[in-house]
Design a protein around this nucleic acid. Structure first.
Lengths: 219, 219
DNA sequence: TAAAAAATAGTACAAGCGACCTATATTTTA
DNA sequence: TAAAATATAGGTCGCTTGTACTATTTTTTA
């Protein structure tokens, strides 16, 4: 279970009770976002979910935008922490590490949190520059893990090409979300799709050349 | 430029003026969805955008859900028509056709309509079963084009395996949307990414075996 | 323990929402 | 042209929203 990351707000919630409250508020907001979408996220519902009054919620977050930003921060932070953990799982060969990461990420798509939160984030980022920036940060860290492994698996690639390959691999997996995610039409075949992804991406990163990327190859 | 597809509603708008109005309403709703997201789509704004009163909008759509459904229908229909056109472009070899489709779809991600509309659709489909069904229909037709070509490019694959490969290819491209789409961080490198996708997917569909998919291969 | 700081509930409010109704204008039909 | 069908604007309703304010309770500090 992923955990909400606390982001202490300056001037408020400097004491233990307040910190717990902020945690409950963020937990409630996150649950609402996942169960009903941002479209249905209201301060009254967040307050009710946290077991406090609207007035009290207003004490911690003086406006909705502040709450949304803190929510994005905390959820995104929890994913970043997860990426770091994945990285530590450094076991056998770089090939096996690479495949393990692919499998881990696609498996994670099956959770309701990931399946529901990310499309909200993508939609939000189209109209909210703060969301866009935080999303960008998140994916930079997600790709960093892939990047390091691609560097070993295909030393001939230069930095830019490597990053483009990492982007392609990372984005491709994200794209599976609405299809193999939580209670999606293809979720029962998630592991088959995971096999396809693993073999396809492993071949891609180990064999791709600069010519392929620049378009100078056969087409 | 994609065009709004008219879906004449039974009992209303059976005459020319009404049909034009419905078109303007849908156009307005679509523009709002793309420019500000579903979160900011209100009947008053739709009416203002269509140059009519709220009362008049209510004459054509007695409630917001009806309007949303018609909007989804019309936009999705316009994409389905586009897929059919792509199919007719049947030119040279199946390899070239396949690559052409990949390139076409990724190029289309660069439009503001596609970049903004689809994340809204994905988010919506998590909490609205009607949206989920229409989205499913849309992607079934999108994959059908790929499916036919994979059938030629890799005759050894059985139906189920082929569909899973098509799903992986299609979903992977969709995943590029928040990264190489309209005014996204990597949009200037869209054609490089397109090259990676083309070479990766072409190799995948021509070489993948049932053992790769079932997971009985090396790993 | 007394004063100060923090936390909380309750209320109020203006704005915006979807939905509904009615009267009038316009267009089509016969 | 008269009648019928269609289209339109404007207003109103009850409700929800985010935000603000106030009074009270709880907790921390000195």
């Amino acid at each position: 279970m992923r955990e909400i990351q606390l982001q202490v707000r300056p001037g408020t919630a400097a004491f233990s009770k307040g910190q717990e409250r902020v945690l409950k508020i963020l937990q409630s907001a996150r649950d609402l976002m996942i169960s009903s979408g941002y479209h249905n996220l209201t301060l009254r519902k967040v307050a009710a979910g946290a077991g406090i009054s609207v007035g009290n919620l207003n004490y911690y977050y003086s406006n909705k935008q502040d709450l949304l930003r803190d929510l994005l921060n905390s959820v995104i932070e929890s994913y970043i922490e997860e990426f770091d953990k994945v990285r530590q799982d450094a076991g056998a060969s770089p090939e096996k590490q690479f495949v393990a990461i692919i499998r881990f990420i696609i498996e994670d798509l099956g959770t309701q949190e990931t399946t529901h939160f990310f499309p909200e984030l993508w939609a939000l980022s189209n109209h909210d520059s703060y969301a866009a920036e935080r999303m960008d940060e998140l994916y930079i860290k997600a790709r960093a893990v892939l990047n390091d492994l691609i560097c070993i698996l295909n030393p001939a690639l230069n930095e830019q090409d490597r990053q483009q390959v990492a982007l392609f691999v990372s984005a491709s997996m994200e794209g599976l979300t609405p299809f193999v995610g939580f209670e999606k039409p293809w979720s029962s075949q998630r592991s088959s799709i995971s096999n396809i992804a693993a073999s396809s991406f492993l071949h891609l990163v180990t064999t791709i050349t600069a010519e392929d990327i620049s378009g100078l190859a056969v087409p």
